[in-house]
């Protein structure tokens, strides 16, 4: 395997792994969706809501 092949594989694994890991960590922390940065509500839907 050449250097570029290894670098591409590592980068791809990092990107896919990073997205999956972030989703899992957000769930564990109680951030249910991850912020969509829409600025309407700051981080309100990332907060663990108690009232319904």
């Amino acid at each position: 395997m050449t250097f570029i092949e290894i670098a591409v594989i590592v980068a791809c694994v990092a990107v896919v792994g990073g997205v999956i890991a972030t989703t899992i960590i957000n769930r564990i922390k109680g951030k249910k969706t991850g912020c969509c940065d829409c600025s309407y509500c700051d981080n309100c839907h990332c907060r663990d809501r108690q009232e319904k």
Partner: peptide
């Protein structure tokens, strides 16, 4: 109308 932008803030609204 907010749903034309993004469904998430629209649902919260």
């Amino acid at each position: 109308i907010m749903g034309f932008g993004c469904s998430i803030p629209a649902m919260i609204n």
